[in-house]
Structure formats: structure tokens, C-alpha cells
Amino acid sequence: MHIPDGFLSPPVWATLDVAAVPAVALMARGARQEIEERRIPLLGVMGAFVFAAQMINFPVGLGTSGHLVGGTLLAITLGPAAASIVMTAIIVLQAFIFQDGGIVTLGANVVNMAVVGVLAGYLPYRLVSGAGARRDGDNPTSTRWRSSAIFLGGVLSVLASACLALAELLISGVPMPRRMLWVSLGLFLVSALIEGVITLAAVGAIERLNPLWVRSPKDSGSRALGVVAIAAVLLVVAGVVGASAAPDGVWSLAAQLGMSAQPPSWLHAPLAGYQVRNFESTWVRKASAGIAGLLMTYAICALAGRAMAARALTTRAGVRQRSA
């Protein structure tokens, strides 16, 4: 679900844009560890593969067909950070070329699908490496564990990103009756299950062609990414629970609870200073918060880039010293 421009309220998109920048920077760094640096261009071609694979229809019953979304498939073939970069690239291109998803909501879409979606999809696969499922050839139990992890990964990936998108829309004050909310959650669950089945089948087909293309759970991704993945899933759960507790938006909940028109202070994210439904607040505050968000995004981006480059230099120097 790509959120177009105009749907998220400024505090929501600004916060997510700011959150997306360090996340993508972290993933870019991780991708350099997972894939030899010289092979980074390969990821672009694999992104084109995901685009193309989405055209292949899978019959899923009742006369309908589904297609692969691909986050989990990429995560267990290329590694989670590299997969996240590829999905980010796909989302950026879709926003610019195919009018699929907005520009100021780019951060939201990247967080939903490329960061949380990929990490949530990868999490079960990462966990089976610890759950006694060593990948030792023909052991049927471990194969079953692995298969269920891949299936569950596909399910979680789609479910997490869809629920997160829904939560963001609700927090932005897009009204949705409670019954509609349940219907859409049901639809998300169905498409998540479809993604699980398709991912499992596709990974099986890839593995038959060349087993080396599918990474073993153990040597894919660092522990830090695992922690981030768990945090991402928890974030989604919290977001969905919070949002479904207040289907008319968090602000109306606050109003019901007898708080004044002022939202609670913890909702004053660094940029908040405006209220979604309160249009008397001056435009200056809104606009300057938006611009401040962008500037902050840019500053964080630039600083993270500097820091990463500096660290890369020192580690490389260290390696050179050790080898000398």
C-alpha cells in the first residue's frame, strides 16, 4: 500500500521522513557488509527482477490471482540490509515514475515497506538459525522449520507494512469506521497469507536452480539488524493497537478522555506544534515545522554520511595496519 501525498498529516510524514533517513543510511552500510562492494550494482538488476516478478500472476483460488511483493524473498537471497536498499530504490522509482506513492510521504512508504516490511519478513528466518534448525541437508525437521519460517516471513512482511500504513493514516486523522477497519485488517491478513505461500514456492524454485542463491539463516545479517527487526515488529504492534483503539484518530481519543484540545505532551514529537484537526493554529508554525523537518532530514543525512565515511576510513586503515 503506497500512501500518496495529501493523506498524511504534516507531523506524521515529517516524523517518518526524519526516521527514514538514518534507517536507510544504516541499511546502506549493512548492504556493504552483506554484498561485496563491487557487486552493489547487481542489486539494481535484482530490483528490476522484483518489478518484473510482480507481473507474474499466481492463481490463488476463487478466480483471483495474487503476485509476489518480494521483500522477504530478497531478504533471504541478498541479505536483509541489501534487500532493504533494493526495496527503497523500488519505492523511490515508483513514486517518481509511476505516481505510485507520494514524494513527501516517501519516508513513510520507505519505513513501512523497505525497512519494517523487509526486517519483519526476515526475522523468522533469522530466528530459525537459533531454533535448532541447523541447515544440515536432508534433516526433515529442520527443513520444515525453515519452510515455516519462510512462509511466516512472507506473512509478517506484508502484514506489518500494511498495518503500519493503516495506523499512519488513522493517526493522520483519515476517518475510518470501526467496521471498515476490521474489513481492511481481514483483507491484509488474506494478502499476507498469499504472500507467504508465494514466497515459499518462489524460494523453493530458486533453490532448486542453485542452492547457493538462498542464504543460510546464520550468515545473513548482523545481530544489530536482528534487534532492529524485533523493534520494528514491536513498533507495528504498538502502532496498530494504538490506532485501532482510536479509529477516529488519536486526537479524538484524547478529546474523549477529557484532555483539552491540546494533545498530550508525549505526542509533541520534536516537530509537532500543530494539531491535525485544529485549523486555527497558524500556518507559520505548520510550514516552518515542515521545513525544519526537511532541514533536519538533510542535516542528519549529511552527518550520517560523514560519520560513515570517517568510520570506513579508520576501519580500513586498521585492517591495513594489521595486515602490514
Binding site: V24, A28, R32, I40, P41, G44, A48, L93, C301, A302
Partner: peptide, 14 residues
């Protein structure tokens, strides 16, 4: 200031 790996990936993807 977009990370270089991401720019390269988008370029090849396109």
C-alpha cells in the same frame, strides 16, 4: 547527499 549505494541501485534498476 543520498547514500551512494542507493543511487547506484536506483540507476541500475531504472
Amino acid at each position: 547527499g543520498m547514500p551512494r549505494p542507493l543511487v547506484l541501485v536506483i540507476q541500475f534498476l531504472y
